[in-house]
């Protein structure tokens, strides 16, 4: 084990996979010479050269289209979109092409490609740079969607994504890049796609979360433990495919669930997960599933009010107290 940041864990995953497989190429805006807007691609150009680490024009739709073509032609591209917000410029290639090609061509090809995208709010970047669009990708079949919370999962999941023969949307939370954690040293350490992780075992309430929301949920669970409330924290890690089994097993044990999502509430992944829990566990639920969500507003800039738009420790704590309450 080594302690490292989420950023360095991602960087190490990229380096290891590029060493492991010469068909892995990295492309994106400012990923080579500048080493990435968030420095996740630091050192790649010097180690792997300009044929494998490619700066691209600011043409997001074409970054993805070129990756699709490269994947079809035998490479294993890892594209970086500078932030998830810019993925909206590439939605045609992501949704209409990448996610469809294998199916509409009758399974005659596959697209082993990964799109990395930093995302999430909380840095006072304003409405156009603070979005959490995970649900947009989850809605579309034909690709996987991953979103790690810890450095170890970041490394193990990114390596799995790169080795996987399906297209993978790989989200990274901008506020987690500097977070630290223990990461296994084994270059064959992989985190399986489609497996949620019980990050903390508990008895009375299941908190389902992902990415930065998992970190907040763990903090809530810590604090509530001292008040005698035992929370189990399920970290989704894979948003597509969703690990129903782990979620439902936990809820069957605790009988209560709070789903925490950074994205907008309406049609968010919280609604999907709450619905699945209600469909599968209605009989044993001690309280209706509660959602803690990003507010349905374009993100304001000012830090005083931006905070109110994103789930916080206090709002998650309140939601747990609500589902524990006899009156809820």
């Amino acid at each position: 084990m080594s302690e490292m940041t989420y950023r360095d864990a991602l960087n190490l995953a990229l380096k290891e996979e590029m060493r492991h497989d010469p068909s892995v190429v990295v492309l994106g805006e400012d990923v080579a010479l500048y080493e990435g807007a968030f420095k996740v691609t630091r050192g790649l150009l010097s180690e792997f050269g300009e044929e494998r680490v490619k700066d691209t024009p600011i043409s997001e739709n074409t970054i993805i289209g070129v990756s699709v073509g490269a994947a079809m032609g035998g490479l294993r591209p890892v594209a970086e979109l500078m932030t998830v917000n810019f993925a909206l410029l590439a939605m045609d290639q992501i949704v209409n092409h990448m996610a469809k090609i294998r199916s509409m061509f009758g399974g005659q090809t596959c697209l082993p490609m990964t799109i990395r995208m930093p995302g999430g709010g909380g840095s006072q970047l304003g409405a156009q740079h603070s979005q959490s669009l995970e649900t947009y990708f989850m809605h579309c079949p034909g690709m996987y969607v991953l979103y790690p919370a810890t450095p170890a999962d970041a490394k193990g999941l990114l390596k799995s994504a790169i080795r996987n023969n399906n297209p993978v949307i790989f989200l990274e939370h901008e506020l987690l890049y500097n977070s630290k954690g223990e990461v296994p040293d084994d270059p064959e350490f992989l985190v399986p796609i489609g497996k949620a992780d019980v990050k903390r075992a508990g008895e009375q309430v299941t908190i389902v979360a992902y990415a930065r929301m998992t970190i907040l949920a763990l903090q809530v669970a810590d604090e509530l433990a001292s008040s005698g409330i035992s929370c189990e924290v399920v970290d989704l890690r894979s948003l597509t495919p969703l690990d129903d089994e782990t979620i439902l097993t936990s809820v069957r044990k605790t009988g209560r669930a709070v789903v925490v999502e950074e994205c907008w509430r309406t049609c968010g992944l919280g609604a999907e997960i709450a619905s699945r829990i209600h469909e599968q566990c209605f009989d044993i639920l001690k309280a209706p599933v509660k959602r803690v969500s990003g507010l349905d507003v374009p993100m304001p800039y000012s830090r005083k009010i931006e905070k109110l738009c994103i789930p916080q420790v206090e709002t998650i704590t309140q939601a747990v107290m609500d589902v524990m309450s006899d009156n809820y």
Partner: peptide, 21 residues
Amino acid sequence: YAIVGGQFPISVGLAFAARYR
């Protein structure tokens, strides 16, 4: 491809893969 212009970048990507390989 049935989205007008969708095949442009895919062609570029295939050409890139061919040259790379």
